[in-house]
Design a binder for these strands. Structure first.
Lengths: 447, 447
DNA sequence: ATGTTGGCTAGAAGCCGACAA
DNA sequence: TTGTCGGCTTCTAGCCAACAT
């Protein structure tokens, strides 16, 4: 009920200090230092908001950094392609092997947009631990969090009423109601990425009965400026505490223009910073914005290495690739390699960044990228037992996506040796419980 | 009444196109091109919002660009000083003589923050026209606009009521009311920087009588997210149309962090872009944000030249300098040069950027910068007739600031030869009407 | 001259089950 | 199972002059 007030006040206090500091000579922002340092963002919530495909390499591990991908993130943020004015940096290789010194999670205070800050240092040799850490990142499945995600309807966001909670979601995530009450109701408290607490009345009523969030809900909607089509994510953490995140629909251009830096300067800044770091083996800092960036551009070294040395790439080769569904699920699409060529033959010759041209089996081709990198795909020319037919999932199309990661864990517990075969780790087979009892069926799955 | 709706819809339409485009391969933002191009921002309103001290050199003119100042703008925006990681660019001089190809005015669609985009091209020789244009910029006083600026009170921004219009402001700017009505009232329409029209009920009522904006006002306050301490600016243009701008109080760090680019990369981007342009005499693009930037860093060449060649700088020298007051007025403060030294002796040796250390006569010294550049100050060792005593304005302290530019024009019409002495152009004398009839009084003004 | 407050009222916000889909 | 709607209630937004500075 009182959240916005509290936020207002904090801002006002900070403002007074900043006004004085801004007029002072060179001290840049010393006034608000205390307020500024982020309150250690909850990792589970951050990842829930970032999406199921986003995984950050652990600090201390060895990674591969692709300036091209970084540049694409800027281009996507600015809604502007790389301009001819941007010089090429011939001394900057298309990939840098780096030690990842530091990873910190962030969320934009205005929009709740999640992003990560990484400190990278180019290296020419590396310790065994760093390499092992990067392998660890591959094998170690993120401990699955209990959460639900719902895309807001017109009714959810209108001022006419509250939020209709999907039945399964309420039962899975919220504390159980006391059904002896008439009607059953309780007060829920949930923390957002900035550690603000939002309070809701959770009630089970109506005919037929349903779970609703009423009092407090509209303050959240207006406070976060949510609209129909945006999504909310409720997470229950290990301490049974509720966390609350948002994901905005892919509407408006994120930062239509920056008012600080031209997009040319941004591109140059990225390239020059990387080139300078590469030349001196000195650390540099980047931001990775998983929702703005089309593709991850800091890859665990082990993932890169295994993809490059294990995957035999050839024209016409079939592969699978993971995509995110609505409601934070994952699913795979089948595709075929139709070409191998440089994405930008002028600036980035012989780069492995998205050098595979691909076509997709399912028709809505315009929706998927027509260029990918080798570490993004899973070849289907894998051991026979792991190779289902392309439309295997048709029998139960609705549930397949949501349960895939759950099933993946199940599978791994049943067949731990699978984890040793990263090529196959993401196979469709994980959606198929029968494989565990009847692996001999596998022979029917390949053609 | 309906403004927010209309904006919502436009956003939604744009969103649908952007979603498709974003998924497409390389086309960055082709979907929204139509919507994106700004609707030619009104120059009078832009300047009113930018403040009385901001003047943009005209396109085609010769300017001096200072990378240090540009860097300071980024530092101020990011609330972060230049880091040691940022390499120095020994080949980038501390100032670049440039041709200013293009100046476009912008306003942030979210915050209405004003900024300008400039395309600069370093030159080694220049035509006479470009030089003359830069001189023109000095002499040509901006045609004074009729406006008023009011800092919002708690009552103005509360939901309890409307906006209390200062009597003089209403009489000067708004169309006259029909006082035969009981009560006198009318509907006002005003356009903001994005050409959105806001409608207000203007009524003259109460005991004692006063001007108020009622219906429509709270929509404006919430739509622009204004708080007590922020200011509104009403401008009446030549066509008697009302324009409406805002100025936020100097509270929160503007962009506390960018989520796209580290501040290091931004600094590097600026320097590398300038260095690349300087090396190739190729054009580059910068953003100038007058509210975020402590100091202008693109200076008309003529202004720079005259300051450097006319002003005899010495330790202990007395000078005046313009500052902005609240409510968009100007006033001068007296100061003394206390030192001459490089601001950053490592990165920018022998730079003229803010190489003068200064002290200020009036006590609240912390509020004013302790380093300035030579083109920002007016030496008081000027021709005698233009040198009033420091506290001359005491006789009419309240009106002095508001009317200074008006009086300046008056003065110039009376004594056009004054315009040929840019050193003295900003003298306090302009606030003194008596000079026109009785210039012989000048002898009393110097000590 | 103008900022703030109490009183009043119209209209929006918001809780409820009905009724689809 | 859950999205939207009409009905009803509550409370805030917002107009007014009184009063204070």
């Amino acid at each position: 009920m009182k959240q916005p007030q509290q936020q207002q006040q904090q801002q006002a206090i900070c403002a007074a200090a900043a006004t004085t500091a801004a007029m002072a000579t060179t001290a840049a922002g010393s006034g608000c230092e205390g307020e500024k340092k982020a309150p250690a963002i909850n990792s589970e919530l951050w990842h829930a908001c970032a999406g199921p495909l986003v995984s950050l390499p652990p600090a201390g591990s060895l990674v591969v950094y692709f300036p091209q991908g970084h540049s694409e993130q800027v281009a996507a943020s600015m809604q502007k392609d790389v301009d001819a004015h941007v010089p090429s940096y011939p001394n900057l290789p298309s990939k840098l092997i780096c030690l990842l010194h530091n990873v910190t999670l962030h969320a934009d205070p205005e929009t709740d947009e999640v992003y990560a800050q990484m400190t990278l240092q180019p290296v020419t040799s590396y310790g065994k631990e760093a390499l092992q850490l990067s392998e660890l990142a591959l094998k170690q499945a993120r401990p699955q969090t209990e959460f639900f995600c719902k895309t807001l309807t017109a009714s959810d966001t209108s001022t006419h009423g509250g939020f209709s909670v999907p039945r399964r979601a309420a039962e899975k995530i919220f504390p159980p109601l006391d059904f002896t009450m008439q009607p059953p109701a309780q007060e829920l408290q949930a923390r957002d990425l900035h550690d603000n607490v939002w309070t809701f009345r959770h009630i089970y009523r109506g005919q037929p009965k349903r779970h609703l969030l009423t009092t407090g809900w509209s303050l959240f909607v207006s406070g976060k400026r949510l609209f129909a089509g945006d999504s909310v994510i409720f997470v229950r953490d290990e301490k049974q505490q509720l966390l609350l995140g948002i994901r905005r629909a892919n509407r408006q251009p994120p930062n239509i223009s920056s008012s600080v830096l031209s997009s040319d300067s941004m591109h140059i800044g990225i390239l020059a910073a990387a080139a300078h770091a590469a030349a001196n083996n000195s650390p540099f800092t980047i931001f990775y914005n998983p929702r703005a960036s089309p593709t991850e551009f800091v890859i665990p070294f082990a993932k890169y290495q295994k993809a490059v040395y294990s995957n035999q790439i050839s024209l016409g080769m079939r592969f699978r690739m993971m995509f995110e569904t609505e409601e934070l699920g994952t699913r795979r699409y089948m595709g075929t390699i139709t070409g191998i060529s440089d994405l930008d033959p002028v600036r980035w010759k012989n780069s492995q960044w998205r050098n595979l041209q691909v076509g997709w089996d399912e028709s809505a081709a315009g929706e998927r990228r027509n260029r990918v990198s080798i570490w993004e795909i899973e070849p289907v020319a894998a051991p026979f037992f792991i190779c289902p037919p392309p439309f295997f999932g048709a029998k139960r199309p609705r549930q397949l996506d949501d349960e895939s990661s759950e099933m993946e864990n199940l599978l791994k517990r049943a067949m731990p040796w699978l984890a040793e075969l990263p090529i196959c780790k993401h196979s469709h087979a994980v959606g198929v419980p029968e494989i565990i009892e009847q692996p001999q069926h596998a022979k029917y799955w390949c053609r």
